[in-house]
Simulated assay, not measured.
Amino acid sequence: MSIRFTDHLEEFGRLRTEFWSTPGIIEELKAYEARNDDHEYKILKGLIPKPLVGRVTNDVGPAWQTSDTFFTDFPEHNYPNRVLSSTEHSHIICNVACHDTRLYSSDIDPSSLDKTAAAGMSYMHLLLITEMKAHFLDFWNRDDSVNKVNRAIHDAMERRYTEVARAYQRSNSSTAPQRLALLDAVMEECRISAVNFANTLRTNTSATDVVFGFHSHPHHSVGHLHMHVLLADPQFRTYSTLAHDWKTLSFEAVEHVLGEEEAEPTIPGGWPA
């Protein structure tokens, strides 16, 4: 086994032990499974922020509930082109944070704060919810997969640009015109790069390696089982943050640990009924 794989095994095992040893975790998981919106969630991370409960975002779907995550009933809460493929058990979605304009320059944010790390990890950053790897490989081998990915990335970039530009235009700040000019300059460069990345991806799909990974509790941002899929070639991370690499565990390590747990459960008191 490689050093990296061994490190991931140990780290994921440690995180799992800490998680299942947390007082009250079984009760909280049962409340989450039952979608109990009256429960006060204190342990699980990545649920809908309290200010958004009862609200509709993206102008799509029903209002968010306390027990929801941003991936709950995903197709109902999002624009159709964000779902690239679906099976009975999982969705392949485009991670719009990867194409957030905040990624490209710390100056580009209506709040004037550097939120670079809030953005994504690769030109192509897909998220799989549930059944995962087999679904992705099936999707990736389809004739239309790359075009769907590139189209979703383009739409995410342009939608975020429009949101930020409108925020600047509504702002009374004296720096708004300067910031809008900077946004336009950065986006011009990013659009050129996106076209180049898209063409590279389109012509080399069969030889393109992908990386599968997970962010384990408490280092995840969305409290819903999902797998990250990134392009392995460093060129696709030219405009991407590396801030999340340290917490990304390999698919193989996670699969190995969960396989051992299934064979010989180590959960205190046994698996939840």
Score class of each variant (00 low, 15 high):
80 P>H: 13
75 P>Y: 08
77 H>I: 06
78 N>T: 11
111 S>W: 05
114 D>I: 05
99 H>P: 00
102 R>G: 01
78 N>V: 10
108 I>K: 02
97 A>W: 00
115 K>W: 11
92 I>C: 03
93 I>R: 09
97 A>L: 10
102 R>W: 00
84 L>C: 13
101 T>E: 13
77 H>P: 07
76 E>V: 14
78 N>L: 02
83 V>A: 03
118 A>V: 00
116 T>E: 14
96 V>A: 10
108 I>C: 01
114 D>G: 06
118 A>F: 12
92 I>A: 04
81 N>T: 13
81 N>P: 09
75 P>H: 12
113 L>S: 08
94 C>A: 07
79 Y>L: 14
95 N>D: 15
91 H>E: 12
101 T>R: 15
118 A>M: 03
81 N>L: 12
118 A>R: 04
105 S>A: 11
75 P>A: 13
102 R>M: 13
114 D>A: 01
120 G>V: 00
110 P>G: 08
105 S>M: 12
93 I>Q: 06
90 S>M: 10
79 Y>K: 14
76 E>C: 09
99 H>Y: 13
82 R>W: 00
85 S>M: 06
107 D>V: 00
89 H>Q: 08
80 P>Y: 06
104 Y>V: 05
103 L>T: 09
116 T>R: 11
93 I>V: 07
102 R>D: 00
85 S>W: 15
94 C>G: 01
105 S>C: 13
90 S>D: 02
83 V>T: 14
85 S>H: 15
82 R>T: 09
95 N>I: 06
113 L>V: 14
96 V>G: 00
108 I>H: 04
93 I>S: 10
117 A>P: 12
83 V>F: 02
108 I>R: 08
92 I>W: 07
112 S>D: 13
87 T>S: 15
120 G>N: 09
100 D>C: 11
121 M>Q: 05
107 D>G: 00
119 A>S: 10
86 S>A: 15
87 T>Y: 11
117 A>G: 04
89 H>I: 12
81 N>G: 00
110 P>M: 06
83 V>Y: 11
109 D>Y: 02
112 S>L: 03
109 D>G: 05
111 S>V: 03
80 P>C: 04
121 M>T: 07
90 S>H: 06
88 E>Q: 01
85 S>D: 15
91 H>M: 08
84 L>R: 05
76 E>N: 09
90 S>P: 11
81 N>C: 07
82 R>P: 00
99 H>R: 01
109 D>W: 08
89 H>M: 07
109 D>R: 10
80 P>I: 01
119 A>H: 06
117 A>K: 14
100 D>K: 09
121 M>W: 07
91 H>N: 03
101 T>W: 12
88 E>L: 09
95 N>Q: 14
113 L>T: 09
116 T>I: 06
110 P>E: 14
98 C>V: 00
99 H>A: 01
86 S>N: 03
98 C>K: 07
116 T>G: 10
86 S>I: 05
